[in-house]
C-alpha cells in the first residue's frame, strides 16, 4: 500500500512537469493551431540561460524571473521574425520551421554550454514530505497550480486574454473588432515560451541539464495535452497529472515496461487517445447550430 501511495505521489510530481509543458503546448495550439515541436528545445535553452545567470553569480529567484522575461521576449521575437511571413503558408512549412528550430536550439546549446551534464539548483529546501515525496516535487506541484491559476485568470478576466482567445478562434472577426491579431499570436508565443521556461527550470534539478533533456519530456507534455484535450489549459494540467500517474503505475506494476519503456507508454497513450477520443478526456465539444 505504501508503494502504491508513493507511486501516486511520484506520478503527481512528474505529472506537474508534464502539465507545465502541456500548458505551453496548449497555449501555442490555441494561438496558431499547431503543435510546436520546438517547445522542448526552447524550454531547454531557457533553462541554460538561467543556469548561466546563476553561474554568473545572480541569486536564484532573480535569474528565475529574468529567464521568464527573456524567454517571453524570445518567443515573441520568434513569432514576429520567423512565423509572421508564414501565416498563410501550408502546414508543411510550419512543421519544417519547427524542426529547424529544434535543430538550431539543440545545436546552439551544445555549442555554447558544451554537452556535459550539469546540475541545476532547486529553489526549494532539501528533504522530503513524510518520506514519501521530495520537497522539490511538492514545490513543483504548487508552481504548476499557480501557473494554471494565473493563465485561467488571464483568459477569463483580462481584456487581452479575451482578445487572444478571439484572435485564435476567428482571426478575421477579431480584426474587425479592432484586435491586432498578429500581435496576439506573438503574445501567445511569448507566453508559451515563458511557461516552457518555468517547466524547464523546475525539471532541470531532477533530470539534470543537458541539450537533449527535454525530448522525452516534451513527448510526455504532448501526451498530457492530448489526453487532457488540446483545447483547454485546465484539461492539459489534469492530463499532465494523469499521464504522470499512469507512467509511474505502468512502470511499477507492469514488469515488461519497468523503467525502460516509459516513452513507449507515451506513444501508446497518444495514439490511443487520438484514435478513440480525439477531443481528449476533458476536452470540450463545441456545439454549433447551422
Amino acid at each position: 500500500m505504501d508503494l502504491f501511495l508513493q507511486q501516486i505521489l511520484t506520478g503527481i510530481a512528474n505529472g506537474a512537469i508534464y502539465a507545465c509543458l502541456a500548458l505551453a503546448v496548449v497555449m501555442i495550439y490555441q494561438a496558431i493551431d499547431h503543435f510546436n515541436f520546438a517547445q522542448g528545445e526552447m524550454a531547454m535553452f531557457s533553462t541554460y540561460i538561467c543556469w548561466a545567470m546563476i553561474a554568473g553569480g545572480l541569486p536564484y529567484w532573480v535569474a528565475f524571473f529574468a529567464t521568464i522575461i527573456i524567454s517571453f521576449i524570445g518567443g515573441l521575437a520568434i513569432e514576429r521574425i520567423i512565423f509572421k511571413p508564414l501565416h498563410s503558408a501550408p502546414v508543411l512549412s510550419h512543421i519544417v520551421v519547427f524542426i529547424g528550430l529544434v535543430a538550431i536550439f539543440n545545436s546552439l546549446a551544445g555549442a555554447i554550454w558544451d554537452h556535459n551534464i550539469k546540475t541545476f539548483p532547486s529553489p526549494f529546501p532539501d528533504g522530503s514530505f513524510g518520506g514519501l515525496i521530495g520537497l522539490h516535487e511538492v514545490g513543483m506541484f504548487f508552481v504548476t497550480l499557480l501557473l494554471l491559476l494565473a493563465i485561467f485568470c488571464f483568459f477569463k478576466f483580462t481584456r487581452v486574454g479575451m482578445a487572444m482567445q478571439a484572435a485564435a478562434a476567428n482571426p478575421a472577426s477579431a480584426g474587425l473588432v479592432g484586435i491586432r491579431v498578429g500581435w496576439m499570436l506573438a503574445l501567445g508565443w511569448g507566453l508559451a515560451a515563458a511557461i516552457g521556461a518555468v517547466a524547464g527550470m523546475m525539471i532541470a534539478p531532477i533530470v539534470f541539464l543537458e541539450p537533449n533533456m527535454m525530448l522525452g519530456i516534451l513527448l510526455y507534455g504532448f501526451a498530457a495535452a492530448i489526453v487532457g484535450g488540446i483545447s483547454s489549459p485546465g484539461g492539459a494540467v489534469a492530463g499532465g497529472f494523469l499521464v504522470g500517474i499512469i507512467e509511474n503505475m505502468a512502470g511499477t506494476y507492469i514488469p515488461a515496461i519497468g523503467s525502460e519503456l516509459k516513452l513507449t507508454v507515451a506513444l501508446v497513450l497518444i495514439v490511443t487517445v487520438l484514435l478513440f477520443k480525439p477531443n481528449g478526456l476533458f476536452g470540450k465539444t463545441i456545439v454549433t447550430r447551422v
Binding site: F35, G216, L263, L267, I270, L274
Partner: peptide
C-alpha cells in the same frame, strides 16, 4: 506528425 514524432522518439 505528432503520432510519428512519438514513434521516432520512443
Amino acid at each position: 506528425a505528432l503520432a510519428t514524432f512519438a514513434l521516432g522518439v520512443s
